[in-house]
C-alpha cells in the first residue's frame, strides 16, 4: 500500500535507543526521525556506530533499550520493504556466481514458491538495466571491477522493490568519477525512494543530500544538507580545516532543488 504514506509521518522513528556489544556502548540514547523521500547522509568516525545503527534499522540487531519503528512497525516485520546494500559483500571471493543470480536474490520470498519465475527474471533484468549493468548479467561477479560490483549489489537491493534504500559505504572501492556517477543514480532513485547512505564522501555527497546524521555513539540530526566544521571534526575525530571562505563557513552547495 503505497498510497497511504504521507509526508508528515516519518518512515523511520527511533526513540531513546541504546545498544551495546558485550557491555561496551555502541549507541547511547538515540532519538531520530527520517521522513519519506529524504536523502540522508550518515557520517561519523569508524567504530562510531554507523553500521550498528543501520543493522538496528534492518532488525538484524535488537536494541538493549528504546524503540525503533519502520513504517510504524517493528523492523523485523517490514525488513522486506528495505533495500540493503551491505558494506563488504565480496568476502567470498572465489564463489561461483553470476551477476544475474546475485540480483535474483532480491526476489527471494516475494512469493511462496522457492523457484525463480519469469516475472522475477524480468524484475532482475530491469534493476540491472537501471544501473547500466544489463550487459554483464551472465558474467561471474569476480570478473567485475569494484564499481561494477557495487552497482550489482544496488541492483539486487532495487530488485526487492524497496521503499527505503540503505547503502553502507557504497563508494569505498570506487574512484572519484565512479562516485559521482553512483550518486547521480541514487539521486534519480531518490525521486521515489527514501535513501540513507553511510559515507565518508561528504564533499561529493553534499549536492545530493537533504539531511545529515552524525553518529558517534550519540546521534545528531541536521535537517539541512550543510556539513559544518563541527560535524567534520566529529567525523574524523580531529580538527579538519574546511576549504571555505566567508562567514558562515559554507563548504557545500545549497540545494537547488529545494
Amino acid at each position: 500500500m503505497r498510497s497511504d504514506k504521507n509526508m508528515t509521518r516519518p518512515v523511520i522513528e527511533i526513540s531513546h535507543l541504546s545498544f551495546s556489544y558485550n557491555g561496551s556502548t555502541a549507541l547511547n540514547d538515540v532519538t531520530l526521525s527520517i521522513y519519506e523521500k529524504e536523502f540522508v547522509a550518515v557520517i561519523g568516525p569508524n567504530g562510531g556506530g554507523k553500521t550498528t545503527l543501520i543493522k538496528l534499522m534492518l532488525g538484524l540487531l535488537k536494541p538493549d533499550s528504546g524503540d525503533i519503528r519502520i513504517f510504524s512497525k517493528p523492523p523485523k516485520t517490514v525488513s522486506h520493504r528495505i533495500g540493503y546494500v551491505p558494506q563488504d559483500v565480496a568476502i567470498n571471493k572465489s564463489f561461483p556466481i553470476s551477476v544475474i543470480d546475485i540480483v535474483l536474490m532480491g526476489r527471494l520470498r516475494l512469493h511462496p514458491w522457492t523457484r525463480v519465475s519469469k516475472k522475477d527474471k524480468i524484475a532482475a533484468r530491469n534493476a540491472l538495466d537501471c544501473l547500466e549493468m544489463l550487459e554483464f548479467q551472465n558474467q561471474k561477479i569476480d570478473d567485475l571491477s569494484g564499481g561494477q560490483r557495487e552497482r550489482v549489489f544496488i541492483a539486487r537491493a532495487l530488485a526487492t522493490d524497496p521503499d527505503i534504500l540503505i547503502l553502507d559505504e557504497p563508494t569505498a572501492n570506487i574512484d572519484s568519477h565512479g562516485k559521482s556517477h553512483l550518486y547521480g543514480i541514487l539521486k534519480e532513485l531518490n525521486k521515489t525512494k527514501t535513501i540513507i547512505v553511510v559515507s565518508h564522501d561528504t564533499m561529493v555527497l553534499s549536492s545530493y543530500i537533504t539531511s545529515v546524521v552524525c553518529v558517534n555513539n550519540n546521534v545528531h540530526y541536521h535537517d539541512d544538507a550543510e556539513i559544518t566544521d563541527e560535524m567534520m571534526d566529529m567525523s574524523y575525530q580531529c580538527p579538519v580545516e574546511l576549504i571555505a571562505h566567508g562567514i558562515p563557513h559554507r563548504i557545500l552547495k545549497t540545494h537547488k532543488d529545494k
Binding site: 538484524l60 559483500v89 567470498n92 564463489f95 536474490m105 527471494l108 520470498r109
Partner: peptide
C-alpha cells in the same frame, strides 16, 4: 543466497 550472503537472505525472510 545463504551460502553467498546469509545476512541478505535473512532480510528477505
Amino acid at each position: 543466497a545463504i551460502s553467498y550472503d546469509d545476512e541478505f537472505a535473512r532480510l528477505r525472510g
